[in-house]
Write a protein that binds this DNA or RNA. Sequence first.
DNA 1: CCTTTTTACTTGCAAATCGAAAGTAATAAC
DNA 2: GTTATTACTTTCGATTTGCAAGTAAAAAGG
Lengths: 142, 142
Amino acid sequence: MKSVEKRSDCPVSSSLDIFGDRWSLLIVRDLMLYKTRTYGDFTKSAEKIATNILASRLQVLEENGIIIKLPYPDNKVKGLYKLSPKGVDLVPALIEIALWGGKHVSNDDQCSPFLNEVKKNKTKFLKNTMAKLSAEDEATID
Amino acid sequence: MKSVEKRSDCPVSSSLDIFGDRWSLLIVRDLMLYKTRTYGDFTKSAEKIATNILASRLQVLEENGIIIKLPYPDNKVKGLYKLSPKGVDLVPALIEIALWGGKHVSNDDQCSPFLNEVKKNKTKFLKNTMAKLSAEDEATID
DNA sequence: CCTTTTTACTTGCAAATCGAAAGTAATAAC
DNA sequence: GTTATTACTTTCGATTTGCAAGTAAAAAGG
């Protein structure tokens, strides 16, 4: 776990030292939604992350124990990224950000069903989602 | 409300387009903790934000309706920043980030009491905190 | 008043980071 | 055996960061 430069001992500040940028939490978002993703999958997301930025962020997230890179079954080129338990613990924060964004800046039809389910029973949603992400195998949603 | 460049319609992405950097949420954190802050107060926080960055972030947060600048009573030089209702709505996200940071990257003695109170009853804590921040007058904590 | 201090910024500039595009090396597919 | 995929790396101009110094206006002090 390579230490990033810590500006203070405040947990908010320390967190932002790791993922406080415009891309890192989008990687975590994709892993929350799909459970596993390849490098190429990330580049196909709507925000069109540049490949150099992606590589850099994946490295920081992996060094900080938030994501894990696994070998892709029967393929030596591809890799499979997934959330570590520490990464799964970011889901509540991500959901709160999504709720805020859905309420105040972006009402996307495509994720309204998702946010509605969250709003219906947040505790249950978090429990289910985090449990699924923590399960060892199981198929991805996509 | 000056529109920031939106990379996609995803609410997470749109949120990060506004506050996805290492400083913005620290400004929100200070306003959550102290309710009101002057420009100089922000510069005195532990992370030592540079004045040009601070000015730039305050402008973006104000343009996006997250913070409000008020005149300081009986003083034409000072200003008083506070969270708007939209800014107060960021508190749950901020708290989740703080909880994650406290658990996984930073166990600061100074804010342990704070985080312990959150953990004891999150719903109650959020309700109280957000209500205090929404109240029109009332003295600051500090 | 008149001077000094405080406050909230702005400016200048070097260094770091971002981001688009092209390049590469290894494996997979045909 | 040739072509295509995949996962990066490299290059380079543009933007952003962050430290330091500067500034203008109001407040405080004498």
